[in-house]
């Protein structure tokens, strides 16, 4: 997962996480998000987990940092389309209540725009 497919429209950045988000791929996502958020144009960030196979605690850390960054700039991070397996990782770590999670990408985009 060296490449992160993304779209930017109406100040909402939508990123799709394909494959595995683990110790090896997390630094790439960290760098990618840092570059995109640096521009100051992103008011809402949507991360789509639909094709995500796996997330480790290193991946959760990147999401947590992204949430903090968005919050400090007055924006929002919305996660969407978590598979049962990914959801379980969030549940065990106790992260589910910490993030805004939507069932679908469409709902997430709406939530990010509000």
């Amino acid at each position: 997962m060296t490449d992160f497919p993304y779209e930017l429209s109406d100040s909402v950045l939508m990123v799709t996480l394909d494959g595995r988000l683990d110790t090896n791929t997390s630094p790439q996502l960290e760098k990618f998000l840092a570059e995109k958020l640096e521009t100051g144009q992103v008011k809402g960030l949507v991360i789509d987990f639909e094709p995500t196979e796996y997330i480790s605690s290193a991946g959760l850390r990147i999401l947590l940092m992204a949430a903090k960054k968005m919050k400090s700039s007055g924006g929002k991070l919305i996660l969407c389309a978590l598979s049962d397996h990914v959801q379980e990782v969030f549940d065990i770590a106790g992260f589910t209540p910490v993030f805004n999670i939507e069932a679908t990408r469409d709902l997430a985009v709406v939530a990010a725009q509000n």
Binding site: S57, L60, L64, A93, G94, F95, P97, V98
Partner: peptide, 9 residues
């Protein structure tokens, strides 16, 4: 039991 990873919030 309810709980969350430490260092988050």
């Amino acid at each position: 039991v309810p709980g969350i990873a430490l260092g988050v919030t």
